[in-house]
């Protein structure tokens, strides 16, 4: 059995009395692709915010490769190997496309201000490596991001390409676990299909373990080893795609029946 990469243990979070995540157990194994589904407001993004350290859980523990990451700053968690994209795109819009990717190398590079001022040989070597890394990450998207003007500001990218750039930026932190928040949102069918393939490729060629939030059931079906369904911050189903998709509770949650009955 593969190693447990990420483990959530009874994690709860409330905002001023309103429970957003309650007593959630979740795990992702090394090399796995796990999808999180659930209606809007189910707490999926909040889950990502908990894992990346933006919020701290009220209760429970979150472990990466066996070590607790609760209480760490987000940048420390990133350095330990978790990277994410944002549902509401958060690119550095006025930086160039390539710089966006280069910034993410901050955590695993070293040159300080003085070395940069003097442009020491070590600093220049590191700069070259960062540049290589960025080229590589951008080239991963093949035709899509290739050939664009990488030295143009990121705001000149189209919506779909901004999503791709977010993924490229996240991978440039050299993560072990990649969290993708609705990567196919706002994409047309062709692009959605591409994203499905791309996520598979991220695992096979990039070697990342992936936890993905997705609404598009075709995408979920195409990529997932395992699917977790959330509603009102609790896990209502877990299993293969078919198991979860045919689960009565999940269907009700999506159709809005569950809310009426459980309340």
């Amino acid at each position: 059995m593969a190693e447990r990469l990420l483990e959530l243990d009874g994690v709860s979070l409330a905002f001023g009395g309103l429970r957003c995540v309650s007593d959630l157990d979740l795990h992702v194994d090394e090399g796995e692709i796990v999808s999180v589904i659930g209606p809007n407001g189910a707490g999926k993004t909040t889950l990502f915010n908990l894992i990346t350290g933006i919020y701290e859980p009220d209760e429970g523990d979150i472990r990466l490769a066996g070590e607790s990451i609760v209480g760490l700053q987000p940048h420390q968690i990133t350095r330990r190997g978790i990277a994410r994209t944002f549902q509401t795109l958060r690119l550095f819009l006025n930086l160039t496309v390539k710089e966006n990717v280069m910034t993410a190398a901050y955590g695993h590079t070293k040159a300080g201000i003085f070395r940069s001022m003097l442009r020491t040989p070590g600093m220049r070597r590191e700069e070259r490596e960062i540049s290589e890394l960025a080229n590589q990450k951008l080239a991963f998207f093949g035709e899509r991001l290739m050939g664009y003007r990488w030295n143009q500001p990121a705001y000149s990218l189209s919506y779909a390409n901004r999503r791709r750039l977010e993924i490229a930026r996240a991978t440039a932190t050299n993560p072990r676990l990649l969290l993708l928040d609705e990567p196919a949102a706002g994409m047309n069918p062709v692009e959605t299909h591409e994203i499905t393939e791309l996520i598979g490729k991220l695992r096979t060629e990039g070697g990342y373990t992936i936890l993905v939030i997705e609404h598009d059931m075709h995408v979920v079906e195409g990529i997932s080893d395992r699917v977790v369904a959330l509603d009102h911050g609790t896990k209502i189903a877990e299993g293969t795609f078919v198991e979860v998709a045919t689960n009565q509770g999940v269907i009700e949650a999506y159709l809005g029946l569950g809310t009426a009955e459980t309340k």
Partner: peptide
Amino acid sequence: FVNNSRTGRAWRSLREDPLAAEVMGMPV
């Protein structure tokens, strides 16, 4: 030189979006 280094890029990204910068591994 600093502006075109790791630190300079980090400064500019925290100007753009401190939270995203933090999540991308920069100690904001």
